[in-house]
Amino acid sequence: MSTQRYQLPDEPRPGALTQAAVDPMWPMFAFILVGAWMGYLWFALNAFALGSPTKQRELGLIGVALAGSALAFFGLAGAYESGWLDPGSLKYALLGVIAIKLACAYGLHVMQSRVFELFTYFGGQAKNGAVVLVLGFVMLKAPVAKMLSGGVLGVLLQ
């Protein structure tokens, strides 16, 4: 009896975007060491690169981080203007803005870690994000900080 072998297709090479996938720890480091702006951008890119099923929620969380920290900042500025907060208390209260950004960044990290685990479990190859992080730290941190300094954007994105 002659048996015709059933042919299985080869796996296609991953697309350019998939090849940019990294461990979400790298965007988290970028958030802490370079600035929130780089962390948000990298988390957003990584959501697409990982093909994250929670990408809408992840992008929404970046929106919440921006809107929440803006709201907290303007609220505190209003409280200071109205005399409810003195300069000594204001610096403690401003930690709340950082806490909002940090909580959202950790939330993004948790969501992407779950997807990343599955991505690597099924053979996905992640890039090492160290080079991008070092480049961001050495080449972009200072100029972006200078560009954003003094404004509301600086509070939201740094």
């Binding site: 930690l95 940090l102 948790v110």
Partner: peptide
């Protein structure tokens, strides 16, 4: 996950 995020942010604060 919420507990984890709250703990980490709490430690930082």
């Amino acid at each position: 996950s919420t507990r984890m995020v709250l703990l980490l942010v709490g430690m930082y604060l």
